[in-house]
Design a protein around this nucleic acid. Sequence first.
DNA 1: TTCCAGGGGTAGA
DNA 2: TCTACCCATGGA
Length: 314
Amino acid sequence: MPVGHEPADVLEVPRPFDLWATARSHGWSSLAPYAWDEAAGALARIDRLPNGRVYRLQLAEGPSTSDRMASVRLAVHPTPRAGDLTILRRRARRLLRLDEDLGEFHRLCRAEPALRDIPRVGAGRMLRSPDVWEDVVKGICTTNVTWRRTIAMVRALTALGTPLDGESNARAFPTPTQVLDAGSGYLTKSAGLGYRASYLLELAESVVAGQRELEDLPRRHRNGPALRGALQALPGIGPVTAAYVAMLLGSYDELPMDSSTLGFARRQYFGGRDVDEATVGWRFQSHGPWKGLAFWFELWLTWESVRERLAEPS
DNA sequence: TTCCAGGGGTAGA
DNA sequence: TCTACCCATGGA
């Protein structure tokens, strides 16, 4: 049991499932208030519940419960108050997408040589945030900027969040109100958001004023195009980020075509030729509603850290 | 100094 | 619908 954590819970998930492959499925685990502990093989997060209470969650590989089910061990600090454990458990399942049925996607992967390793290593789930607000804000912080600076921006934003009791350096992701209170000067200069600060302020303002209901978006727009359209109507979110955030919200029928993924596609499938996004998309057309996920995880399999992991004896 | 990064907004055609 | 241009910032 990790130091400072109380024994809390075991969350079951159908196999194939691997915590590392899920937590490290894309860059989110490097963004505060997430932290990946490589030595412990555990994902930590400072989480502020809607009731305002703040906890540190730690998610580690759980005991093997059966041939059919894998599990994740959820540890929480401090000891949850009455009712909070139920909320924390629900949020943890959401972060790791433990309730998402990937059976069809995994069958598709097994039929395609380039994707066969995905179900074999228990991958296919993309780490997400507990709410839409956090995923959208982080999406804004990825635009037209290096990944290193995205990490710095999100770290600076998280410095605005509510701290864990007695630990001023361990803070939750800020609420829209906390972002608004920080003001334009902090966001633009100190946090280094530059021109993105005005998008973020406009977004936070409309959420606080009740003009935008972000958390309701996935329920109101059940098909991919409608959801991406709604996301694209948000300030600072264009087609690329909308496709990316839509994937995090569970719509995989479009490719997240940013400069890095497009570069990968050109190298991988077109000999480095300068093909457009539609041509890349055409290659994945047969994957239908799983198009975006298939593309993302084919890219993921080329990451050095993933290749090293795949090479390890199981 | 110039370019560019895990793009987006806007004006004009 | 498409294109050109601008947008803060910081590292290479």
